[in-house]
Design a protein around this nucleic acid. Structure first.
Lengths: 208, 208
DNA sequence: GTCTATATCGCGATAGAC
DNA sequence: GTCTATCGCGATATAGAC
């Protein structure tokens, strides 16, 4: 969870009484994430984050070079969690395929809620930050690829059809937040969980 | 296509030699749409639109009150086309259900390409403009509702499952552009057409 | 109907005191 | 590590001449 080795100023040393810098840095990231979730990434300025943190804008810029750096810090955490969920065949191979699918989508739903700001703005975010663009593009390809092969094993369909299904499921999962926001629904664990059923119903009739 | 009764200044009269105002207004809207498609709605400023039109920023504000008004003008056109595609049972009832589905999704693909700026930014756009928020929310509910009933007739499944499928297809269609942009693919008629196959493959195994 | 000029605003980011 | 003060920029929008 703490990928705090990405600091700009020299570390005060791990044996100092309180690693206060890391605390402030993490608090900024947490508050920023909450604001992003509430108002959308593009609408939240560094000034607003600083205000909500109870610190000055100048201080925020001591801890992060800019807003993109805050996002990158958050993104790295998401990336690891998504990969752990979908790129870990040995730890999950034993369980029933549909059980595994359900478990994976439920895990994805949790991440979706926690970082719900990201997905409705994914394209706008990508356009502003090359690091995120590369990393997210890679992640999307990596996950849909692995997921497509798993689906092919489950359905026995062609690689092309399995890829189509994998892509459709990825789009449903990442687009579900937008649908809820457009519909005016709450975005919480209950409403996001509907996505899990939708995906299960997409796969079930195609099992071999 | 021309819903040009939305003017701010008094009309020069329809019997004037050239309705030059409407021409400029439509040219602004066309150029704006192209820029939105190329760079994303939020990234395109009124200054840039004016520059690309070869007119002054002040002149742009003579024809449209602000950028949201340009969007609204474009949105109304999309709305009508989507409704014609999905809320016209009598004109299409005779054809085979799967033929109709394919025809509808192909039509949707055309609209998607033509207004491809809208869907990746739908949430951000909605948050900035109440008119679009209300209209798009209504449109989403209207189309997914009608489409869900059509699917229920085709599959014989429960209303709940049909609604899930309808919502999933809506999310796939509206989210497909984002997927392509994240993947780094071109967004054109060929790549967007893949979405039609994906949707057909979602429905086919569930026909009664 | 179109232009030029400009007012206003707020954001991102930095400098330098403490 | 945190603050205050501020610069520079660019965007929206308006005023008034032509």
């Amino acid at each position: 969870m703490t990928n705090g080795e990405r600091r700009l100023a020299p570390s005060p040393g791990r044996n100092s009484l309180r690693a206060k810098s890391a605390e402030t840095r993490d608090r900024i990231a947490d508050v920023a994430r909450d604001l992003f979730n509430a108002y959308g990434y593009t609408a939240v300025t560094t000034n607003r984050i600083a205000l909500a943190c109870g610190i000055s804008p100048g201080n925020l810029y001591y801890h992060f070079r800019n807003r993109e750096d805050i996002l990158w810090y958050l993104f790295e955490g998401v990336e690891k969690r998504v990969q752990a969920l979908f790129l870990n065949p040995e730890g999950l191979a034993a369980t029933d395929p549909m059980e595994r699918l359900r478990w994976q989508m439920a895990g994805a739903a949790t991440i979706l809620v926690e970082f719900r700001f990201f997905f409705p703005d994914q394209v706008a975010i990508m356009r502003r930050d090359e690091r995120v663009e590369r990393a997210y593009r890679h992640l999307q390809g990596e996950i849909t690829g692995a997921f497509g092969r798993a689906l092919q094993a489950m359905t026995g369909e062609s690689a092309e059809r399995s890829a189509n299904l994998s892509h459709a499921i990825w789009v449903v999962a990442t687009g579900w937040i937008s649908f809820l926001l457009v519909a005016g629904s709450e975005v919480d664990t209950t409403t996001v969980a509907r996505m899990v059923d939708m995906v299960v119903e997409m796969v079930t009739p195609r099992l071999k």
